[in-house]
Design a protein around this nucleic acid. Sequence first.
DNA 1: TTTATTTACGAATACGTTTAAGTAAAAACC
DNA 2: GGTTTTTACTTAAACGTATTCGTAAATAAA
Lengths: 336, 336
Amino acid sequence: MKGTVTVKTLAKELNISIATVSKALNDSYEISLETKQKVWDLAKKLKYERNPSASNLRSHKTKTIAVIIPEIANNFFSLAINGIEEIARKRDYHVLIYQTHENSDTEIAFTDSLLSGRVDGILISVSSNTNNNEHFKELVKKIPVVFFDRVFEDIDAVKITTDDYESAYNATCHLIECGCKKIAYLFALNNLVTGKNRFAGYLKALEKYNMLYTDEMIVHYDKDTSKNYENIKAMVSNQKPDAVIASIEELALPCYYVARELNLNIPKDLKIISFSNLNTAPLLNPSLTTIEQPAFEIGKEAAGILFKILEKKYLEPNENHILKSRLIKRESTSCG
Amino acid sequence: MKGTVTVKTLAKELNISIATVSKALNDSYEISLETKQKVWDLAKKLKYERNPSASNLRSHKTKTIAVIIPEIANNFFSLAINGIEEIARKRDYHVLIYQTHENSDTEIAFTDSLLSGRVDGILISVSSNTNNNEHFKELVKKIPVVFFDRVFEDIDAVKITTDDYESAYNATCHLIECGCKKIAYLFALNNLVTGKNRFAGYLKALEKYNMLYTDEMIVHYDKDTSKNYENIKAMVSNQKPDAVIASIEELALPCYYVARELNLNIPKDLKIISFSNLNTAPLLNPSLTTIEQPAFEIGKEAAGILFKILEKKYLEPNENHILKSRLIKRESTSCG
DNA sequence: TTTATTTACGAATACGTTTAAGTAAAAACC
DNA sequence: GGTTTTTACTTAAACGTATTCGTAAATAAA
């Protein structure tokens, strides 16, 4: 790197010390406006770019945050990242993305490696296959972390979620009011409050209407995508539910294929409702009733709080921020 | 950072020099296996994590690459990132994501800021609104860059693309063979070879079959999403084409809404075909015929070549790598 | 046995920045 | 006019790692 322009270059050129240059670049009050201007001008002219490693090594600020998510090819997480990025961009922060692909070991490897001071803070949406949260407990002691959407109950960190319980409750009620007598549930995120709350909302609605419920009506998410299709097909064939609630988007689409395969008409024979941020939901055949989470806002909120922690240097009380989801009724649950 | 464990900590504990520790950690041939083992054991025991900033400052290796893309909430790019990540993960590299949101100024700001040595290499898919490539010309002189999918013609860097010309040609032929007499084209990426080639393929097919072509049948992509809907609606109303080719996914979905609005039956009144990686394409109403790019493979290929450049320290000849897309025929172009 | 070579390590420096501590000159105060 | 305070800088020391160069001991070659 011979041609690199550093503070030294600027200092030599302007005949001032490198300390002055550094302070000028950081707009320190110690430096006169006149000098600052000279430094700024030369820096622009020579296209000086601060070396991030050196800066970070000295200041312990990386201007970088990490986002750990299960999967990027999912509209909810893509939108959440958009929200995160918007906030990060404003503060000139960089965003490292890590995908766990729902693998707990990968998740642990990521969190471990982020302990090295590569980032100032971390945003996490937990992998569905993570059932042990010890590594998170260690993590939150050492670096600011904000969890969003997929969160654990007993971790001492800020958590941004949506009103999962109420959403599932309302969705189930919607189906019941449409006349559904047997509503199956596609369970995911068993280990997380997120998943538990959704299921609890479903149960609560059934209870309110004195509806029957058996374990056979529940299909649990499988890492193996093709298994999900098989399991749902088996359940629908055997149990013959007249409605299905998918707790995650990945479980809703197989339902469409299953319905086709079994010659079931949606919504006449089988109504479907799903937690989902698919932007093609209105264009599906038939259009899909969704519980749409404010993904973009969740990202913004989570990032905003992380920066608040980073700036104020104090950890917020372990309060939960809960945003509201929207139930959008479409053809897949039309009451005919 | 008082509790931080550094090479110094390890050195003191083992009564050896920090140089030896550093070399041992890097598995240097200068260190005896016995000593190495002691260092490794202690490092693991104390959960030593190498400080990336210090390491990078000294070695000029960041173990980080940047990915600059227009939009993450797009299945093509999400999948490409998956491919990139898979390769990066194998080499223990970190991935910074930057979204331009199709904004050229943002793109320039990113490329400028990446000149500071924050990353070892960059993967770029160019924003559609970028019509000046001067900043890229400067960039590729200073840091290894691989372009993928959305590329400029005259930049001296490796480019990974798909067979856009042939794909568009084949798609157009498919429509013509279905009996279409007037095929509209939804143009995007005008400034890039990618966009030019797709359009050229379309034109070539028209020419082969002696089909009519007027500028009125072309709608150009607008940054303002709602404008796209309006423009397509106007074109379809006035020109009454019997088919539409969308050069990007973002232009295909508005067609569905336009068809509904104008009471046109897809595919009877209007056939639609689109460059797209939508995973709900088979579930749309009607299912969408797509030209599906091997997004995941493109990402893998691009990242693979970038690492080849990074490791071999020599720039590959400016050759183009062209992967094949697949035309997947569905209901939206069924010849009924 | 003497000399040359290899092995295994340490001392010291550099990477580019930030910052605590120090200082001369200018300004403000009585 | 003398003292204090403020302003605008500089010096020097970090941050944690990688690396060049040097060297003593062990081994091999003569």
